[in-house]
Design a binder for these strands. Structure first.
Lengths: 158, 158
DNA sequence: TGCCGATACTTAGCTTAGCTAATAAAAGTA
DNA sequence: TACTTTTATTAGCTAAGCTAAGTATCGGCA
């Protein structure tokens, strides 16, 4: 307990916070999953597509790091997105090993539609909240976004 | 755009909020997944186990609703938890169709350990935050928890 | 130039978690 | 008793995650 200072016992308040954040994240995603999957966009696909759309052409390598998943997972995710015509693989002129992923027009459109659908669902859930609560969530989302990023990778989307 | 009034176009602020919440939830879970899976507890298992531990013996039916997944999914999830000795199926005295799920001592212990591990990870990520930001997250988690619940089901855990 | 280790991606093969459809058993009801 | 509804499971599919192993390219260096 007193040996390594970076493994201190967390307080009950911290335990509660972690629990609630975890639980809230799970239930939020489950609720949104229903909407998204109806349009053929699962959460992982949506997240990856978002990075591709907003991050411009990006190497699978980088995408894997940004999404915190292994290269094979990204490879198959890209396969699926490409099969559906949402992205395309293009060659990197400087390095023939890398495959750059670029969103197609269709991909951009679908992302926009999915985001609208999602926000409508969330908006319905958020309706009973006060404006103050909404601002609270807004700020909390930014804080979470800041701490959850694995490294610096200047994206805005997902 | 103007036809059905219950599908109003959301404001850019709402779109941004939905996007950030979605993204934050995904990345938060990805980060915690690494810790949890090391202990054999995936996010879905953890969430279900939490409901079972804190919600007392619960029918699969109810658990499926609480977790917002289909009955077969809960059935297999329960199989896995039971195989690992974390829960047990007991008969409902009043209705012989239902299988009540009850946590074992081992299940309670593992949940507690997982929650500690998780909170340590989160605590590390939360370290650079101010106390005000932490309180912000605490309140936001409660708000999210309130709106993400599918129905009334008086739990506290996940 | 040619070799060799490192890097980028893919393939193979596995697990978990989600779904729908179909089945079995129990409960409720006409 | 016979029909319907409810609860849970099984069967069979897909997506998404992983590790290990394979292929192609790059970069260095003798």
């Amino acid at each position: 307990m007193t040996s390594h200072r970076d493994q201190e016992s967390p307080s009950p308040a911290e335990i509660g916070l972690a629990d609630r954040l975890h639980s809230a994240a799970i239930h939020l995603l489950r609720r949104l999953r229903v909407e998204d999957s109806a349009a053929g966009l699962s959460a992982p696909r949506l997240s990856a597509l978002s990075v591709i759309v907003f991050g411009g052409p990006i190497a699978m390598n980088e995408l894997a790091r940004a999404e915190q998943v292994s290269p094979p997972t990204i490879s198959r995710l890209a396969d699926g997105l490409q099969t559906d015509g949402l992205i395309e693989r293009i060659a990197d002129p400087g390095d023939r090993r890398v495959q750059l992923l670029r969103a197609t027009r269709k991909g951009r459109r679908l992302l926009e539609e999915g985001r609208l659908r999602r926000v409508r669902t969330l908006a319905r859930a958020l309706e009973p909240l006060s404006a103050a609560d909404r601002r609270l969530l807004e700020r909390a989302a930014r804080v979470l976004q800041r701490i959850s990023l694995p490294d610096r990778h200047p994206r805005q989307g997902s």
